[in-house]
Design a protein around this nucleic acid. Structure first.
Lengths: 223, 223
DNA sequence: TCAATAGTGTCTGTCAGACATTATTAC
DNA sequence: GTAATAATGTCTGACAGACACTATTGA
């Protein structure tokens, strides 16, 4: 009896970034069939001869297609079925990646950052995957440091608050935000300040640890 | 160029249940190689000629191996790599299932419910998968109706509270629990009561909707 | 009556939201 | 001084935890 299956095994990434106060997703122009000429999520085949696991596949592809490495990456969900890919029964292990826009290398014509509110028609089930990715980000954003992944290593509290507001899609009270974030101990004061024009300089912080979750929520709680 | 990969595509389920106030996982005795004679998670190959997607594969296998259908099932994560299965580079789309113990058909000798604190040595990465499943359940339990999936269709508040206590691994105050659960509107009063010996009968409720999440937490909040 | 469990009432500390106020910069 | 943003102080309502209290059954 055969132990293998004929399923096509791929990975796809929903790479999100904040540009001009808007959540954008990285789309890649498909140079080949199927869906030649369409914009789609960056993805590709698992190479069983070189990849240590699906996350390695994903990082290899993101480095190749978007020039990013070391970004925040988590597994989103796995999509499968006979109809999602015209080549046959397929599996896609989808990932969610968050990256500061400045760290992305966009090859004009081959890739683009597109507002999640203004997506073109997408092949496969990529529309659904992006929807799920944004839902995950919005849901997890309120009780984790995920939104800080959109910022550089160092940032001010105002910048961090702005990232949370964009992720949550709601205004956040500055006083509450500072009180909570600082009391959680997730930030380290770098001792430096960032000057602006005609205004008081803001203290510069960085994450004490990598992305993590906490039990209190930030921003408005529904209900 | 070949579009397929040689990855072995499987699904596995962490079927959890509560027996005697303890969280138990369904293990299946492996009648064939690899790991013949070991206890392992119920799982199997995706059949691309008959399965509509990985969840269909999972439900087909659970019906065959555990006689359960219509249970709560959600995707957990996908595990992959060259070493987790001796047959080669493999993918397992792992699922989390919650089911009342009474609805399980256990074929003695072929399957067993084992306490999650007393697991045997498990093949593949099944130990890690169970660990992740329990972490998911504990994390999501405090703000969802997931623990109610361990109960039958109808239940009393005391039974529901007990399920939450077992899932959260902590005592829950009855007054707080009732106040919260009832104010959330997630329960419908059936109008019936359940008699016990020498005690006041308890009202019988059922979930108003299928498993869902809410924003307030039940039980102790950490921090 | 008692034993046992079901269910309610109420106090208190914590904390999010609101918003007024102060601080620090450039000009 | 003004303009602009950074940061703090304080009031209030909501609610979780604690726990005392009442209710309803069988014997």
């Amino acid at each position: 009896m055969s132990i293998g299956t004929a399923a096509i095994c791929t990975v796809d990434a929903v790479v999100l970034s904040i540009v001009n106060g808007e959540l954008k997703v990285l789309l890649h122009w498909r140079p080949k069939q199927p869906f030649e000429g369409y914009w789609a999520l960056p993805g590709g085949f698992i190479h069983v001869d070189e990849d240590a696991d699906a996350e390695s596949t994903m990082r290899r592809i993101l480095t190749d297609k978007a020039g990013v490495s070391g970004l925040y990456l988590e597994q989103l969900a796995t999509y499968s079925g006979p109809d999602r890919d015209p080549r046959g029964w397929s599996i896609s292990i989808a990932h969610l990646a968050l990256v500061p826009a400045a760290e992305l290398t966009i090859d004009e014509g081959k890739a683009a950052l597109v507002s999640i509110d203004d997506l073109p028609e997408l092949p496969f089930d990529h529309g659904k995957i992006i929807e799920d990715a944004v839902a995950r980000l919005r849901g997890k954003g309120a009780y984790s440091t995920l939104p800080a992944s959109f910022l550089g290593k160092d940032f001010t509290l105002t910048e961090m608050q702005s990232a949370y507001e964009i992720v949550l899609g709601a205004r956040v009270d500055a006083s509450s935000f500072r009180r909570k974030v600082l009391s959680l101990g997730i930030l380290t004061d770098t001792g430096r300040s960032r000057q602006g024009d005609n205004r008081r300089p803001a203290k510069v912080y960085r994450l004490t640890e990598a992305v993590g979750t906490f039990d209190r929520t930030l921003g408005h709680s529904a209900g």
